[in-house]
Design a protein around this nucleic acid. Structure first.
Lengths: 147, 147
DNA sequence: AGAGTGTTGTTGTGCGTTCAACTATCGGGG
DNA sequence: CCCCGATAGTTGAACGCACAACAACACTCT
């Protein structure tokens, strides 16, 4: 016998689904149109750009971007094809690969960032109060706790 | 000159991205494993099941499920192949199509629902306080406002 | 040293989504 | 009445992602 969601939970859940759909659709469309990359790729470039020497072990990058290894492999292959990332062997582990953000990749990120941030503001930040932004962070962190 | 996100906004945004990723991954994996359907299809079946006579105009269904028309067309084709949905012509508009949830489709939904709700509870509802659920609804509704 | 086990990363396949192009129909104005 | 712009829905191709199978290497334990 299932414990269904009550009225309030149902409303919250559906509103959440709608909000996420709109946000993702908007962000992805903007990035695709203005920078020619999906949001997932943008995330990867961001993580790499913030790492020392703009380089990261594949597995570390996968963890940082909440991506599966398979997905990362495919994505990096794409990014490498565009000249935005290159791969280097890992000195201390011959299994390893290191993804390095190229200058072209950094330039692409720098070109894409302002429009993206603008869109994040337009679709999210500007619609919430600072208090709600804090609540959103706490809710998100609660969801990210294990168990 | 871009108005970047400040520290707190940045943290909220990244936590949000992580939470959404985990939620979607979990829900989709559960539905795929236990019911053999992606979350998007489940959504369609739900909307149809709640509509009078379990039928809906394609465009209305697309709006209700926050889906593009193209996506809906492909999805309904899939669902039709599984015998969960059938199409009927629309009497008062010869361009129109009406998607009808079959008994098999309703049964598939009924079989999938308990596990899905369980997963929603496990990944979201049980991790938040009632107060946070209310906040989440308000935040989501704010995001869904136009402009 | 050798066997066994876990980790790292890649590859191929199938699936769902997006995008653009297209057909068919509706509805209003000349 | 007919034309023209909108609307409804479909289609095919390209793309990104999930999943499973796999090869290569590291680590541990005897």
């Amino acid at each position: 016998m299932t414990r269904w969601l009550d009225e309030e939970q149902q409303r919250a859940w559906r509103a959440y689904l709608g909000a996420v759909a709109r946000l993702h659709a908007g962000l992805d469309a903007q990035l695709q149109a203005d920078a020619g990359m999906p949001h997932g790729y943008y995330e990867l470039l961001v993580r790499l750009s913030e790492s020392p020497d703009r380089r990261m072990r594949m597995s570390a990058l996968a963890d940082a971007a909440a991506s599966s290894r398979s997905r990362l492999s495919h994505a990096v292959a794409q990014l490498e094809g565009r000249g935005w990332v290159r791969r280097e062997p890992c000195p201390e582990d011959r299994r390893g690969q290191i993804a390095v953000l190229t200058d072209e990749g950094f330039a692409a990120l720098a070109a894409a960032a302002p429009g993206h941030v603008e869109e994040v503001r337009r679709l999210l930040v500007d619609k919430l109060t600072p208090e709600q932004m804090r609540q959103l962070r706490e809710i998100s962190e609660a969801i990210l706790t294990d168990g």
